[in-house]
Computed example of a mutant assay.
Amino acid sequence: MRGLTCKETGLVTTNTATLPVLSPLMGFDEASAIVVDFLKEHIPLGYWAVTRYDGYRQLYLEVRDDVYGVGPGDSHAWDDSFCVHMLAGDGPQIAPDAMAVPAYRAAPVGKAIDIGAYVGIPIVHGSGEVFGTLCGLDPAAQPDELEENAALLALLSNLLTMILDVDLARSEEARKRERAEIAADTDVLTGLLNRRGWERAMSLEEDRFRRFGHPGSVIVIDLDRLKVINDTLGHQAGDDYIRRAGQTLTGCLSREDYIARLGGDEFAIMATDATPEESAAIVDRIYAEFAAAGVAGSIGCAPYTIVAGFPGAFDAADKAMYEEKRRRRASEG
């Protein structure tokens, strides 16, 4: 698209800016990269980003930053941000002098880093739910003419919202197809995914989580007493114990979560769209349901992060599980 006239403010360095070419056919991550590149060139604040509110953090999905040293996958608490105040109506979407706005001056993020100018434009689902923001920051206050970019910023945010909704719908359809495909990779004893199915699920979900910044966790479970049951009651009793554990775990999860038996007495869960608090509640529910079913095990949980990905989350959850097993053995001994 062409013909958007931008005034020469000292912020926009060209008299006529050609809007970036954005299409619903492209992914949200590609569109986000195009938009922040465009803004970094035409409204050259030190930091531009597309961010995601995932229920507890403000997560940076696409970043162009040469002042604060942050990158994709970094985050801070949502309640500490300027954006939470902007969305509440306590501060403007464009603040050339952010410290002149009481809500921004009091925000914890403004005490942690120097923020002289702030831009925060909501990115909203078609349902009206806030996905995140198109966010710009600079350590120095800017001329009041920064506000003259309001129409441009709103247009770019609306375009990102349109592409987001289309890409989310497309991604969900792909997820349904993928689930059907990996359903064949099942463990004979429990009917859950086997290790191959688990690894395929992690690989397929990795791109989706990186693109949208979805919250999620990996939970690793290692059953107790299986060897004792096999040695004293026989392997049929051991198989029944494993099946009962699998059925109990399935009952603790939503249909969108992935659950696998990785082999022997080890299970793994990918809790999709779950914050750390929600994942901790899942762990508590598993312990309670295990106790009711006569199953015992040690559980470790770790959140997904863009930096470490699902392999890193699995390793962290596995480590946490073994630490929990050692702690329980020490307390019982």
Rank of each mutant, 00 (worst) to 15 (best):
L146S: 09
Y56M: 15
Y118K: 02
A302S: 14
L262F: 07
G294P: 05
G213P: 09
N158D: 04
D65F: 08
T250N: 02
P143S: 01
K7D: 12
M321L: 07
D54K: 08
E256M: 09
R243L: 04
E148L: 11
P108W: 06
A98P: 02
R327D: 03
I269T: 04
A292D: 13
A88Y: 04
D37M: 08
M99D: 09
E145R: 01
N149F: 12
Y47E: 02
R329D: 04
Y304N: 03
R2N: 11
I182G: 08
H85P: 01
A154F: 00
Y322T: 11
D54C: 03
G216K: 07
T133S: 15
V220S: 12
G71Q: 13
P108K: 00
G126T: 10
V188E: 05
D144H: 06
D90W: 01
V70R: 10
L61R: 13
L189K: 09
V188F: 00
E145D: 15
Y118T: 05
A316F: 10
R211D: 12
P24D: 04
H125F: 11
R52S: 04
G263L: 06
V220C: 01
D80M: 12
E324I: 03
A292F: 02
D167Y: 15
P24Y: 10
E62P: 06
A280W: 00
L11T: 07
G69H: 03
E266T: 14
V84N: 11
R285D: 06
Y60R: 10
V283T: 14
F209W: 15
S23L: 08
A174I: 08
H214T: 07
V166G: 05
R195G: 07
G238I: 07
P92A: 05
P303Y: 08
A330T: 06
C252I: 14
D315P: 09
I219Y: 01
L59D: 08
M202E: 03
S75Q: 14
D315L: 10
